[in-house]
Simulated scan of single mutants.
Amino acid sequence: MPTATASYQTENGRRYLIQLCKHFAHKIDVEYDAEHGGNGRCSFGPAAAKMSADDTGIRFALSAPDEESLDRGKGVIESHLVRFAFREKLERLDWKSAEPA
Score class of each variant (00 low, 15 high):
residue 79 S to M: 05
residue 50 K to Q: 10
residue 100 P to S: 11
residue 96 K to R: 11
residue 12 N to S: 15
residue 89 K to P: 02
residue 79 S to I: 04
residue 93 L to V: 02
residue 61 A to K: 04
residue 75 G to I: 04
residue 8 Y to G: 07
residue 41 R to M: 10
residue 18 I to T: 14
residue 84 F to C: 07
residue 97 S to L: 15
residue 67 E to V: 12
residue 7 S to Q: 12
residue 27 K to I: 08
residue 33 D to R: 04
residue 73 G to Y: 07
residue 34 A to H: 06
residue 55 D to P: 13
residue 100 P to G: 13
residue 87 R to S: 12
residue 50 K to Y: 08
residue 44 F to H: 06
residue 13 G to M: 14
residue 82 V to Y: 00
residue 31 E to T: 09
residue 51 M to Q: 01
residue 41 R to L: 09
residue 40 G to N: 00
residue 25 A to G: 08
residue 82 V to H: 01
residue 99 E to N: 10
residue 59 R to Y: 14
residue 83 R to W: 03
residue 21 C to R: 08
residue 50 K to M: 08
residue 77 I to W: 02
residue 38 G to A: 07
residue 64 A to W: 05
residue 90 L to Y: 00
residue 79 S to E: 05
residue 54 D to V: 03
residue 48 A to H: 14
residue 35 E to I: 02
residue 40 G to P: 05
residue 93 L to K: 06
residue 52 S to K: 11
residue 27 K to G: 01
residue 27 K to A: 10
residue 4 A to I: 01
residue 101 A to V: 12
residue 72 R to K: 08
residue 99 E to C: 09
residue 22 K to S: 14
residue 78 E to D: 00
residue 84 F to G: 04
residue 13 G to A: 13
residue 72 R to G: 01
residue 86 F to A: 15
residue 51 M to F: 00
residue 53 A to N: 09
residue 11 E to P: 15
residue 16 Y to K: 09
residue 90 L to R: 00
residue 37 G to Q: 03
residue 67 E to T: 15
residue 91 E to H: 02
residue 21 C to A: 15
residue 40 G to S: 03
residue 42 C to K: 01
residue 66 D to Y: 05
residue 75 G to T: 00
residue 70 L to K: 08
residue 96 K to F: 03
residue 58 I to H: 07
residue 41 R to N: 05
residue 53 A to L: 10
